[in-house]
Design a protein around this nucleic acid. Structure first.
Lengths: 347, 347
DNA sequence: CACCTCGATTGGATCGTTCTCAGGCGATCG
DNA sequence: CGATCGCCTGAGAACGATCCAATCGAGGTG
């Protein structure tokens, strides 16, 4: 059946060509065309060439829905997309999503976004899973008891988490994370190399395992260099003015010459206090933040900040996901990547 | 055929239940189940209830691929996801994407991300379109001659642009945009209300229609209030230090008491110059930016900034998209939304 | 020349849904 | 009582790809 002989070159035909159209025109069977697309090495070179030629002529592209139905896959990766919280400097999601989109594309996957509801953290996942709309998930918000991860594990749904299962020892899922402690260690060592000895820490409340992990990088590095940490640490909320207050108190009580912060948001608070006190960041007092947010990049003198290798995280996640989906044994349960330090004027 | 009688309550069955399973169990025909899902009002209330009950019991959810194949739709909206440029304060994409995801979900759509290649701006679109992977596109980067928009129009692919077709008079596609001029007018009037009369403008180079549009809001408002604009404007690159330099020059030559900027990035430059000159933002000199980025929110005293109603933009886009896809006549070719002003310490 | 082998190719079945169409069955109406 | 309507049944046919088992053909062998 020659469904449509005349296709104007530039405009999309009313109904796109199908595999059968290509087969007929190339004078081969459907299966051969399918093989040309999916298993090219099964064809004799000249046949392959001919089929490819026809595919190009017709502008054929396999119908996604039909392929999905038959193969029971979708080549889609689900990602719950939560926007950056207003009032914080954290824009890591933006960069991460982009990296994930790129890394997925490389291996023929696309990223499907769905909204998150904090009250029903599992709802979106459930729908997509049951309607077989996605092949797998990437779970990013693994900070609090990760109900998603637990639930997805129960459902035997393939997924990879960006973030360690901190508190959950029985969690047996696969994850990729950035070594925050190593990042802060890097920052601390950087400050020590610059001659600082009284380096203060401003981090998050104790109930944040991520915060405690980062803090440990500071403690470790200080001690390794024979420096004291007593009276130099503060744990506060992740908002600017808390950072500012903490910095003021620390300056008064312990006279540090440098600050390492668990986030760029807190670092902004420190910078504010320095500004009020007419202290120049970088020359009088050094400041280091975490996440290399736009704020860090745009702040006039520049804020030195720990930068997560989100591109690598995305690549690693996609790699793991592929292994998972092809039912290959996943060699390691977790992968920890090293961050870098973006050094700017504030240190 | 009772394919699977025993399903353990919590774990996903090996193969999910199908419409036929539901039909058999509820003692109705496939068609009736299909209607229960898609056209509930065709069923008698008691039948509907019974079918729904069974659907819930089995945890049935229509197979996406099968439905897509049959209906030739995908309920997917394609969006090319470009990350925020490093070194600028613009994080509008993040907020917009989230709004779009939410608005889409409301009407049963999901957002599919694909990477963008600036050299082949049309590649990603072409693939998705030909494989019928998405129903429509949202095009965001309509600033430069928008090759995508033109190309998509040619292909008769349904899409809505976020952004006006500035230079292109023949463009006949549908768009939604934010009235930047009105936003800047709002900002300028705000400063005038605060008693400022010498209000400077720092914007982008003349070849940016968006920048010129925003600038016109400043000119218009100044003149409407009988204020002069001569010697008070500057057009530079959208980077921090350009903003800083422009501010320095303007302060020296024209002694403005307030700055309105085309972006938060430029506003940061102004703030830097103020800091160097020991001028307090908000008290000595007022500053207003554009985009209400995280930088504006996190900057210690807070940067007053024009905020785009991205949530509304997303809703409007989805609304238009739906009309487009259901082949309803689209009443208006473009929709212009009003931004608001997020007032903070800098003004 | 008949036979065998092996790889390339073929036709039919299948994935799960929606659409179409002919009809059944009970209740309501003229 | 016959006609009409509203709701449902049942079977068959798409949608367009891939999977599967069977077949075809060329080349080599005895």
């Amino acid at each position: 059946m020659a469904r449509q002989e005349h296709r104007s070159g530039s405009t999309l035909p009313v109904t796109p060509p199908t595999l059968a159209d290509v087969a007929e025109r190339a004078g081969v069977s459907r299966q051969t065309v399918s093989n040309a697309v999916n298993n090219p090495d099964l064809l004799r070179p000249d046949t392959l060439e001919r089929v490819r030629q026809t595919i190009a002529e017709l502008g054929y592209s396999p119908n996604r829905a039909a392929r999905n139905l038959r193969t029971r896959t979708s080549s889609l990766i689900g990602l719950r997309f939560a926007p950056a919280q207003e009032g914080t400097a954290n824009a890591a999601m933006d960069r991460f999503v982009h990296s994930l989109v790129e890394a997925s594309e490389e291996v023929g996957y696309h990223v499907l976004l769905f909204p998150g509801d904090d009250e029903d953290p599992v709802g979106g996942y459930d729908n997509l899973l049951r309607s077989t709309a996605v092949d797998a998930f990437v779970v990013t918000d693994t900070y609090l008891g990760n109900p998603q991860a637990t639930w997805l594990s129960q459902q035997r749904a393939p997924f990879v988490a960006f973030g360690r299962p901190w508190d959950d020892d029985v969690a047996r899922h696969v994850w990729v994370d950035v070594d925050g402690a190593a990042g802060i260690a890097l920052a601390t060592q950087h400050l020590i190399d610059r001659g600082h000895t009284r380096i203060a820490w401003i981090g998050w409340r104790k109930d944040s395992p991520i915060g405690e992990d980062r803090r440990s990088g500071w403690v470790r590095t200080m001690h390794a260099n024979g420096l004291s940490t007593t009276g130099l640490a503060s744990r506060v909320e992740d908002v600017v003015h808390s950072g500012a207050e903490a910095a003021a108190v620390l300056l008064d009580e312990s006279a540090p010459t440098a600050f390492v912060c668990a986030s760029d948001t807190l670092a902004m608070g420190v910078l504010h206090t320095l500004w009020i006190r007419q202290l120049a960041p970088g020359t009088d007092i050094a400041v280091v933040g975490f996440d290399d947010s736009q704020v860090a990049q745009v702040y006039p003198v520049g804020l030195t900040s720990v930068r997560q290798p989100l591109e690598d995280v995305a690549v690693e996640i996609v790699r793991t996901l592929r292994a998972l989906l092809s039912h290959q044994p996943v060699e390691t349960r977790g992968v920890l990547l090293e961050p870098t330090l973006a050094i700017r004027g504030s240190s």
